[in-house]
Write a protein that binds this DNA or RNA. Structure first.
Length: 210
DNA sequence: TAGTTGATCGTCT
DNA sequence: GACGATCAACTAA
C-alpha cells in the first residue's frame, strides 16, 4: 500500500443509495498503482448520475455497449471517452443492473505528484491546481483510459480507500456541470473551501431548486 | 477575470 | 450527421 493508514473500501460501501455514496466519497482516497509506484489523491468533488430516471445520465436510455459497465455491480470503474479526446471516470453504485454511478470531478494530489505532472505533460504550467481539478484532468494525471474501464475498485490496480481515524470533511452541494438536461437537481457535491475543486472557487454555483 | 472558440472522434439518431 | 458528464488557448477590458 502507498500509505499504511489507507484501506480499500469494501464492496458494501458501493451498494448503497447513489447520493449517499456520492457524499461519502468526499474525503476518501483514489489510489492508482503504476508498477511499484502509487498515485494518491483525496476526492474533493463528485457528481451523481441516477440511471434510468436521470436524463443527464448515460444510462437514461438503457444499457448499450458503451455504458455496459454502468450496469455492473457497484464498486467498478466506468470510464468513457468524450469530446473526441478526453476520458472521465465514474464509480458504479448499487446492485447489478441499476445503471447508477458517481463521476469523479476533482481530487487533491497527495502522493506521486511528480508522476502526475509527467502524465499531464506541460499543460499545468506552474499552477499545480490545474493538475487534477477536472474530470478529464484527473484521468490524465492518474493514467486512466480505455484499458481501465471495468476495473474492480476493491483493488489492487485502482482503489478507493479510507484513511483510518480521519473525520469526514465539510460538504457543499450545487447543480451539476456541463449538462443541458436534468439541471434542476443539486447532485454535485464538493468539499467546502477546498482549493482543488474544479470551478467556482470555493463557492457553490447558484442553485435553481431541488 | 470573463467570455469565446477550436480540437477531435466514438456513439447514437 | 450531430453532438458530447472537457480542456486550453485566446481575446477583450
Amino acid at each position: 500500500m502507498p500509505l499504511p493508514s489507507l484501506h480499500p473500501l469494501p464492496r458494501s460501501f458501493y451498494l448503497r443509495p447513489t447520493l449517499t455514496v456520492a457524499k461519502d466519497l468526499l474525503g476518501k482516497y483514489l489510489v492508482r498503482r503504476i508498477g511499484k509506484e502509487y498515485l494518491v489523491g483525496k476526492i474533493v468533488e463528485v457528481e451523481a448520475y441516477l440511471g434510468k430516471r436521470d436524463p443527464a445520465s448515460h444510462a437514461y436510455r438503457g444499457k448499450t455497449k458503451r455504458n455496459e459497465v454502468m450496469f455492473r455491480e457497484g464498486g467498478h470503474l466506468y470510464v468513457y471517452f468524450t469530446y473526441g479526446m478526453h476520458f472521465c471516470a465514474n464509480v458504479v453504485t448499487r446492485p447489478e443492473d441499476t445503471g447508477e454511478a458517481v463521476l469523479l470531478r476533482a481530487v487533491e494530489p497527495v502522493q506521486g505528484i511528480g508522476m502526475m505532472k509527467r502524465l499531464r505533460r506541460k499543460k499545468t504550467g506552474r499552477n499545480e491546481r490545474e493538475l487534477t481539478n477536472g474530470p478529464a484532468k484527473l484521468c490524465e494525471a492518474f493514467s486512466i483510459g480505455r484499458k481501465e474501464n471495468g476495473t474492480d475498485l476493491t483493488g489492487p490496480e485502482i482503489m478507493v480507500c479510507r484513511r483510518r481515524g480521519e473525520r469526514p470533511p465539510p460538504l457543499a452541494r450545487s447543480t451539476r456541470i456541463g449538462i443541458s438536461v436534468g439541471t434542476r437537481h443539486r447532485w454535485r457535491y464538493f468539499v467546502r473551501g477546498n482549493g482543488w475543486v474544479s470551478r467556482y472557487g470555493v463557492l457553490p454555483r447558484p442553485a435553481v431548486t431541488d
